[in-house]
């Protein structure tokens, strides 16, 4: 496997940072032979507005820690979509929160586009705060070179506060099971 770059983006409050952190942790701590680096946007940029987190994964040493050409772009807001879609590489893969993102011709360079109503799914669990985890489940089911279901579930049980774990696991499962129609 060679270097893989993923960007998670949305607006402040959607738990974008957590998505990156969970993926980074799952890979670094549980995936045999893989390394990951997570970086985040900081400061005024991360208070409301577009928020983003990058995870770079590789089997060897990761030199440059930031994403430059995204293999995967996972996006949960329109603003973030427009801001970062130019970074998706030709033939990359796009994951969108279909109710919050309207894609345009810029998305044509994507080899594949996966759409999910992650927020609606989360609302069926009582809070839209689970949308990020539903999205992670969806990403997990439709990719092979990022993280495994097993690793993510282990990390979620370890890192998410006890009283929220169960709902998050359900959200993850629902995301896994969701079938994109595109």
């Amino acid at each position: 496997m060679s270097r893989v770059e993923i960007r998670f983006a949305g607006f402040g409050g959607q738990g974008i940072g957590l998505m990156g952190r969970l993926v980074g942790e799952a890979v670094s701590l549980l995936e045999e032979g893989k390394n990951s680096v997570m970086t985040q946007s900081y400061g005024p940029e991360s208070r409301g507005g577009a928020s983003s987190t990058d995870v770079v994964i590789d089997e060897g040493e990761i030199d440059y820690p930031k994403a430059t050409e995204l293999d995967y772009f996972v996006v949960l807001s329109d603003e973030a979509y427009h801001k970062y879609i130019p970074k998706l590489k030709e033939g990359g893969i796009l994951f969108v929160e279909e109710d919050l993102v309207t894609i345009d011709e810029n998305a044509k360079k994507a080899k594949k586009i996966f759409k999910i109503p992650a927020t609606k799914i989360a609302e069926t669990l009582g809070s839209r705060l689970y949308a990020n985890i539903a999205m992670l489940g969806f990403v997990c089911a439709n990719t092979k070179d990022i993280f495994s279901e097993e690793a993510m579930i282990t990390i979620m049980k370890e890192k998410i506060k006890a009283r929220f774990v169960e709902k998050n696991l359900i959200a993850f499962q629902k995301g896994m099971e969701y079938k994109s129609d595109s």
Binding site: R21, L29, S36, V37, Y42, K66
Partner: peptide, 10 residues
């Protein structure tokens, strides 16, 4: 530096 201070890895 900021990059190093804020980035996460193993």
């Amino acid at each position: 530096d900021e990059t190093l201070g804020h980035m996460s890895e193993r």
